[in-house]
Structure formats: structure tokens, C-alpha cells
Write a protein that binds this DNA or RNA. Structure first.
Length: 392
RNA sequence: CUGGCCAAGCUAA
């Protein structure tokens, strides 16, 4: 049984739920870990429905089963589902509660997160860290700091989370202060500190960290590229991307987002097209990532290539609200107000994404520049009437 | 042999 569990767990790691299931079906005696591993295999390969189906028929669920399933829901931002499971637990353990803190934090329900936290009779460092993170990602940096200061036995993740919290506020001084208190550091610590400098516009300092840190990984490289791009040094960003490629470090979707941002910043159409080709041919998985498509559209739009932008848009497999916004505003900025409006109507018909206030800003911009005053007026009404968005 | 926390990223102005 144990070796069978190891095998299923191995399949789970690589996301081969199908193979895991075949093996699972052939196993004679299964214990709770067997089931948990199998559910986890479905979770890892993104098949939540299958995971849930198995969860529902599992004979002897243990605490791990529940928190595994709750965690899967919170990560996919399906908080209702997570909550529903959580409430069925008579005696939720520390891990399930921590999952809920994370879930509430991600959903911006910070007081629910805090209530969960304060209601815990037993907490470990991970629960404290989750609470720090929940406050931090909702910009309650001071509250995050208070929790941080109250952690009995902080670990490196506690420090890393706090450094990142200050980094996103652009507060280098505080970030550095925490950084200097760390006894040991890992790649996350260094990268977070590097980002703190980048966010504060201290690109040279960021680069100094990047050059001296022990083992920069793809996130570290991307952070440095982003630091350049966001501080008006897009040429350097693109140069560093070349180095990253030469160093054999795998790009991620975030890398491409930053690189394409640098391309649009410089209206480097040639390079942008090259990147487009590379990601399409060499990173097929990333090519279908929503954010990568958005960045490609943005790049083409910025370079005035609306047809190519539109082609990317049409090829996208799932379009988020930012996808629609990017394309609509590309039309708007190019003075194609009518096209922008047409796309907006298509958005409503498509129904896959809801317009948000950015959509309306783009539409209003398009209308006003096209001199479509009447249309502007009616869109403005629709904004509050149909979508409950307040004009401001 | 299974479950929870930490670093980078896209759209309007």
C-alpha cells in the first residue's frame, strides 16, 4: 500500500491524474493516504470536479482530505465552496483554519480572515504567516507588521512575507530593516529585497543584489527585468532577458509579460514579433496564458498594429475582462472609436466577462474622441443601470 | 506514503 501511495503521489506531482487513476483502480487495499493522493492528483492537474467526485465517495475522510479539498478551492478563488466544506467540519484542525485565512485574504475578506485567526486556540508559525500575508496583500501593512511582531517563533517565511509587504509599499527602509534581521536567507529573501529596491526606483541597488545573490532563479531574473522595465530602462530589461536566455533559465508567463511591456515601451515591434514567435513555438503552454495574450495585444496596439493585436485577441482561448479592456482601449487610443464600441457590444453578447470601470473608461474615451456624444450619454447610463458601476 | 504560510507579472486615466 505504501509503495502504491508513493507512486500515486509521484503521478500527482507531475499532474498525470489519468495514470494515477489507472493505478489507483488496480490497488487492492487503499488507506486514507491512497485516496488523498489520488484526490491530490486531480487537484494538481486542475480537475477539481473529479477531485470533488472522489472526495464525495471517499469512505474514511481524515483531516488531510478536508484541508486538501478546502485548499484546492481557496487557491482557485472558489471561496463559497471552501467555506461550505469548512463549515461541515466539527473539529477543523490548524491546517484547515489556516487554509481559510488564506482564502479570506485572497478574497479581500480581511475581517473574516482575522476572525478566523483570533478564534484559533492553537496556532503555529504557518498560521501567523498566513495572517501576515492576508493583511499584507490587502495593503494593511501596519497590521501585518503587528502580527509579525507577535509571532512567537518566526521562521524565514515570516521574514520573507514581511519584506515583501514593505516592498510592495515601496518602503525600502523598513524592508531593509527586516532583511537585516534575518539570520539565514534563501532565494525568496534575496528576491523580495531586490524587488523592494525595484519598487522604490533604486534600480542600481536592485542590480547589486541580483549580481551578488547566491542562486538567482527564474523569479529573480524576472524581478530584475521588471525593475528595469518599470523604471524606464526597457533597453536594459531586454538585454537582461537575452542574458537570461543564454544562461538557460526558463522564462515564465511573468517573464514574458515584463519583456513584452519593455517592447511596447520602446515600440520595439521587431523584437515583439520575435518574442511572439518564440513563445508561440517554444512555450506553447505559456502562449495560451491569458496574461501573455494580453501583453502581446498591448504590445501590438502600442505599436499601432491593430490587426495583429486583434488576431491575438481572436486566438485567445479564454478572455478575461483585462483582455477585452486591452483590445478596446487599443482601438480607442488609435482613434477607432466605432471599432471599440463594436467590440464592447460583442463583449456583452459573449457574456464571458463582465465589464468593469476600466472598460467604461475606455469606452467613454473612445466615444468622446469620436464625437459620439449621444452614444457616450447612453453608455454612461448603462454603466450604472446595467452593471452597477458608479461613475466617478 | 497524503493536506496549510513566503519572492516577480497584464488593461483605462
Amino acid at each position: 500500500t505504501v509503495s502504491g501511495n508513493v507512486l500515486i503521489s509521484a503521478y500527482a506531482q507531475v499532474g498525470h491524474a489519468q495514470d494515477a487513476r489507472t493505478f489507483f483502480n488496480e490497488m487492492l487495499d487503499r488507506n486514507a493516504s491512497t485516496w488523498n493522493n489520488m484526490i491530490n492528483a486531480y487537484v494538481q492537474s486542475g480537475e477539481l470536479e473529479h477531485a470533488r467526485a472522489l472526495f464525495d465517495v471517499m469512505p474514511q475522510r481524515d483531516q488531510g482530505t478536508w484541508s486538501l479539498m478546502i485548499h484546492a478551492y481557496t487557491r482557485r478563488k472558489l471561496l463559497e465552496q471552501a467555506e461550505q466544506l469548512f463549515l461541515q467540519l466539527e473539529e477543523p484542525d490548524v491546517m484547515s483554519k489556516t487554509c481559510m485565512i488564506v482564502g479570506y485574504g485572497l478574497a479581500g475578506r480581511i475581517s473574516d480572515a482575522y476572525n478566523m485567526f483570533t478564534g484559533m486556540v492553537e496556532r503555529d508559525t504557518v498560521s501567523y504567516n498566513a495572517m501576515v500575508q492576508a493583511f499584507a496583500e490587502n495593503n494593511h501593512t501596519d497590521s501585518a507588521r503587528q502580527i509579525f511582531d507577535s509571532i512567537p517563533r518566526p521562521n524565514l517565511s515570516s521574514f520573507n512575507a514581511m519584506i515583501a509587504a514593505y516592498a510592495q509599499q515601496g518602503n525600502v527602509q523598513q524592508a531593509k530593516e527586516i532583511f537585516d534581521q534575518t539570520k539565514s536567507r534563501n532565494v525568496v529573501t534575496w528576491t523580495a529585497m531586490m524587488n523592494a529596491y525595484g519598487q522604490a526606483g533604486q534600480v542600481e541597488e536592485a542590480k547589486r543584489i541580483f549580481d551578488t545573490m547566491p542562486e538567482p532563479n527564474t523569479v529573480s531574473w524576472t524581478t530584475m527585468i521588471t525593475a528595469y522595465a518599470q523604471n524606464g530602462m526597457s533597453k536594459e530589461a531586454l538585454q537582461l532577458f537575452r542574458c537570461m536566455d543564454l544562461a538557460g533559465v526558463e522564462a515564465t508567463r511573468v517573464t514574458y509579460v515584463s519583456v513584452l511591456y519593455a517592447c511596447s515601451d520602446l515600440t520595439e515591434l521587431q523584437l515583439g514579433r520575435l518574442v511572439h514567435r518564440d513563445v508561440k513555438n517554444l512555450h506553447r503552454r505559456l502562449y495560451f496564458e491569458n496574461v501573455v495574450g494580453n501583453s502581446l495585444m498591448q504590445m501590438y496596439g502600442r505599436c499601432g498594429k491593430l490587426v495583429e493585436a486583434r488576431t491575438v485577441f481572436d486566438e485567445m482561448v479564454d478572455r478575461s475582462t483585462p483582455s477585452w479592456n486591452t483590445m478596446i482601449s487599443a482601438y480607442s487610443k488609435a482613434g477607432h472609436g466605432t471599432e471599440a464600441l463594436r467590440l464592447f457590444e460583442l463583449m456583452a453578447v459573449d457574456g464571458g466577462s463582465r465589464p468593469d470601470c476600466i472598460t467604461f473608461m475606455s469606452i467613454l474615451f473612445a466615444c468622446s474622441h469620436a464625437g459620439l456624444v449621444e452614444v457616450t450619454r447612453s453608455q454612461f447610463r448603462s454603466m450604472s443601470m446595467d452593471y452597477q458601476l458608479e461613475p466617478w
